[in-house]
Simulated scan of single mutants.
Amino acid sequence: MTYHSKLKNEFVDELFEAVLLLEDIEECYRFFEDICTIKEIQALAQRLKVAKLLRQDKTYHEIEEKTGASTATISRINRCLHYGADGYNLILDKLEEEKK
Rank of each mutant, 00 (worst) to 15 (best):
M1W: 12
T2D: 11
T2G: 08
Y3N: 15
L7E: 10
K8N: 11
N9T: 11
N9W: 05
E10I: 04
F11R: 07
V12W: 02
V12N: 05
D13A: 11
L15K: 09
F16N: 02
E17T: 13
A18L: 10
A18S: 14
A18I: 07
V19A: 08
L20H: 10
L20C: 15
L20E: 11
L21G: 12
E23C: 06
E23F: 04
E23K: 11
D24Y: 08
E26R: 09
E26I: 10
Y29S: 04
Y29T: 06
E33Q: 11
E33P: 06
D34R: 09
C36Y: 10
C36P: 07
T37R: 06
Q42R: 14
A43N: 06
A43I: 03
L44P: 03
L44T: 08
R47H: 08
R47L: 04
L48C: 09
V50Q: 00
V50H: 00
K52C: 02
L54F: 02
L54Q: 02
Q56G: 09
Q56C: 09
D57F: 03
K58I: 04
T59L: 05
Y60D: 04
H61Y: 13
H61Q: 15
E62W: 03
E62P: 03
E64L: 08
K66N: 07
G68F: 05
T71C: 07
T71P: 04
T71S: 06
T73V: 13
I74T: 00
S75N: 04
S75H: 02
S75C: 06
R76H: 12
I77G: 00
N78T: 06
N78F: 01
R79C: 03
R79I: 03
C80Y: 09
L81G: 01
L81E: 00
H82V: 15
H82P: 07
H82N: 15
H82D: 14
Y83V: 14
Y83G: 04
G84F: 03
A85G: 09
A85V: 08
D86L: 13
N89W: 01
L90F: 07
I91T: 10
D93Q: 11
E96S: 12
E98D: 11
E98I: 07
E98R: 08
K99C: 07
K100Q: 10
